[in-house]
Design a protein around this nucleic acid. Sequence first.
DNA 1: ATCGGGATTGCCT
DNA 2: GGCAATCCCGATG
Length: 306
Amino acid sequence: MAGTKRKLPASLAGSPEHPESANTFPNQTQAKRKMSPAKLKKLVISENISNVTAEQSQYFTNDLQHRLGEDFFQQPCIRLAKALLGKVLVRRRSDGTELRGRIVETESYLGGEDKASHSAGGKRTARNLAMFMKPGTIYVYPIYGIYLCMNISSEGEGAAVLLRSLEPLQGLPSMRELRAARRKESARQLKDKELCNGPSKLCQALNIPRCFDRRDLASDPEVWLERDPDESPINPQDIVSAPRIGIESHGEWAKKPLRFYLRGHPCVSVVNKAADGRSGNVVKDLGPSEVQSGTERPDVKRTKQD
DNA sequence: ATCGGGATTGCCT
DNA sequence: GGCAATCCCGATG
């Protein structure tokens, strides 16, 4: 399948989804555009005309050309979590339309000794089986009875990367609909940057259902990952490492900086000011000791992670 | 068969 | 910033 250029049915070709608006984040420090110049030009045009129909040819772009294959996922968990930053998650819906979001925040769950991981201690259950499947396998699990979270299995026994937030790129009106469906009708409209800035929000916005659990990102026709052709390589100094969110009860492991996000990006769900001031791998002069807990390198087997 | 908790979110004060 | 919502899964008896 990979490398094969698929031709879309004519019925899909001529029926773009709802009007799509371009999405820019002026305040974004790394203001590099992700689209090809041609695509960008079209989107810029559509920005200036309300209710413009989506550029149809974007559905003909050769998605598979930039699709990430299984080799990409074959990396140690922390490395994959960082490598995922800047990559584009694509969801192709049954009507042929595509939703796209750029990954800007991830978390590593290492399995084994990682007490905060569903696979801690090598525990393998029906729920977390996908964490043990081949790298690139999607792990979707329900949380708090009402939400879902999406992970990607990495190299390493039971290791996976949680996707925490995306920068919405394409299909924003659809995302807004999907998100609004579960909110009060009286609630104000969500800002663009609020569409996917949380692990369960992105599942809603991209319509990722529970049944995507155990699917393969490298080969699934409905969901995949792309390299952004025009994205300049992420500078390691632009990756913030901070403690993971929502796992406070897990003691020492809660403090390890296994959350990664693009510095200054407006779509990050929770900014860690202490860690934000610091650059990725450089340890500058540190303040109070409590700050340091967020900077110490993860206490994991070097052999496994680098 | 029953019970308790959770890798979150949105609305309220 | 507090807290309810809501239910599946895994642990326990």
